[in-house]
Structures are given as C-alpha cells and as structure tokens.
Amino acid sequence: MIIKILGGGCANCRKLYTIAEQAAQELGVQAELVKVQDMRDIVSYGVMRTPALVINEKVKVFGKVPKIDEVKKYISEEM
C-alpha cells in the first residue's frame, strides 16, 4: 500500500504524516509513506487545500488533519 501525504511542508502536513504513520503501524499494515511536496504533483490530484491524504492514488481527505481513527478507516478501505 502506498500512502501519500500532499503538502508543501506545512506544520499540518507533518502532523498528518505522523498520524498516517502511526495508523498504519497500529493496523499492522505494510505501507510505504511518501511525502509529495512539489506543487505540480500536488495539484495534479485536483487538491486545492493541503494537507491531503492519498491512499493507492485515491484522495481520501484534503484541507484538514483527520483524526487517527478516520485515517485507520481509510486505510482499511484500501486493504
């Protein structure tokens, strides 16, 4: 599973990264976490507000930092 965090290095993006990392760990999922910081790549997902969470190329959340339970739900959807 590939989990991408879209965002140009803002505080909320780092927060989301940590939450996603923890969520994957707690679920025992083998996931590759990728930080997407280049503006061109971010906008190619159609996202206007960062941070955004992309799992297996599907945009799950954008414009806010979701709670860890939400992130777990999104990861489970893609398992």
Binding site: G8, M39, I42, V43, G46, V47, M48, T50
Partner: peptide, 10 residues
C-alpha cells in the same frame, strides 16, 4: 500559502 493550489484549481 494556499494561493497557488487555489489558482491552479480554479
């Protein structure tokens, strides 16, 4: 900080 994604999105 979000003006560019917004510009592109619009």
């Amino acid at each position: 900080c979000s003006s560019i994604p917004l510009f592109i999105g619009f």
